[in-house]
Design a protein around this nucleic acid. Sequence first.
DNA 1: CCGAATCCTGTTTGATACTG
DNA 2: CAGTATCAAACAGGATTCGG
Lengths: 114, 114
Amino acid sequence: MQTRIIPACPERLRSARAALHLIDGKWKIPILIALGFGTRRFQELSREIDGISPKMLSKELKDLEENDLIIRMPHGSPTIAVTYALSPLGKSLDKLLDELHDWGAAFRQRLAGQ
Amino acid sequence: MQTRIIPACPERLRSARAALHLIDGKWKIPILIALGFGTRRFQELSREIDGISPKMLSKELKDLEENDLIIRMPHGSPTIAVTYALSPLGKSLDKLLDELHDWGAAFRQRLAGQ
DNA sequence: CCGAATCCTGTTTGATACTG
DNA sequence: CAGTATCAAACAGGATTCGG
């Protein structure tokens, strides 16, 4: 097989970069996955995502909100409470996250089989 | 569509983490995309992936090889030459990369429309 | 041509304590 | 409960040089 440069490659690289820019960082994908199961409070995310510190959770939530992937909903009255949910754009990542899960699951099986 | 059976959140988080661990780093996805279009030499990758330094390219290629996502093929005699190709495991990422591309392309359109 | 080895800098991340 | 503040450690990444 010969090596040749196909025009589609640069386009693909650009699109991938655009996507990666929104979801990079160690904790963004885990957060999006957790929110894919339903809205969550700060503490719930904190407990659900193993190893994340409040500082990182706060930062990544802020990044995600800036990019319109999630929605922050403070509801004020009795005690302070904030819930986070996927935005429509965030929800549109579901196929991608499905693929990620499928591949990861297959890979883990492969490891287990060795 | 009614509710389908969704894998539990913690399981999903674990699988995603396993997958992410193999492909994290700024340049691994771009490298995998480029190799998805055919085998490449070091210099070709260097030119094709905008902004990467030899050091990073070298490091990321090594990581990818250690995780069996790519195959390094040195062919020695006249001048030293090395080509890189996707391994079967690397090829199995194609659906995921397709999704990434589709989502990124849609997102770029969305930006352009604004 | 394909990297390895060094040096250096800025960013990211972590642990923990603290605030309204 | 939902975050901030602070300090330190780890890492990413660039520039450059060198060698097979």
